[in-house]
Design a protein around this nucleic acid. Structure first.
Lengths: 102, 102
DNA sequence: TATATATTTAGACAAATATCAAAATAAATG
DNA sequence: CATTTATTTTGATATTTGTCTAAATATATA
């Protein structure tokens, strides 16, 4: 059930990879479509894809000549859960109740 | 208002640093107390402290000879918010309604 | 099979990172 | 001021990371 989060946090540490995830959030795309949106070379992108796959943040499916990448929201949720875990239960330091008079 | 999240994600990418944050979540500690909990050298820890400070994930206060480190929950919340931002509004893919028949 | 398109792998390299030992800085105390 | 304790900075080094070009693999189609 548990997954080691280290690869996920490593994967999220790079801005290019976060941008890839952000794109995939809008919907699945082929490697080529993603590559067209970035200035770095396709092999470099492919390297980032590998890291995202290793972290299980993206899934792939071959469609003819193309490889379609899609977001695996579950793993992102888990990273989220781990960050949330930093906040003790019942911590309401960031809550507001709307009773502000102004 | 906005803060560049890159240093935060870089900071979170290292397991030692996440462990430090985890400790500080329990309460503030001096550099020495933290160092005692890890096997790596004090200079290495100090390096990690610098990265955490640069990301504004921790704050420091001198108390006599000691430097007290404490968690800055706000920045962690911001990283959290950015991750949450990956999920489109109204996405209920992980929600459950308890109507399972059992 | 040959050719074109899509993507990845291999190999190289520069930059960034994590680590350490030794030296430096800061504060308390004799 | 000299010494002790706490912490950081410096400088070196090995590893990891991000990037590239060139080559390889996979699929579609003539």
């Amino acid at each position: 059930m548990r997954s080691p989060q280290q690869p996920v946090f490593k994967a999220l540490a790079d801005p290019t990879r976060r941008a890839i995830l952000k794109r995939l959030q809008q919907g699945s795309e082929t490697a080529g479509e993603i590559a067209a949106a970035f200035t770095i070379s396709k092999p470099s992108l492919s390297h980032h894809f590998n890291i995202l796959k290793a972290a299980d943040l993206v899934r792939t499916e071959r469609r003819g000549q193309h490889i379609v990448y899609s977001l695996n929201a579950t793993v992102l949720q888990e990273a989220l859960a781990m960050l949330l875990d930093f906040f003790p239960p019942g911590d309401s330091s960031q809550e507001h109740d709307g009773s502000k008079t102004g």
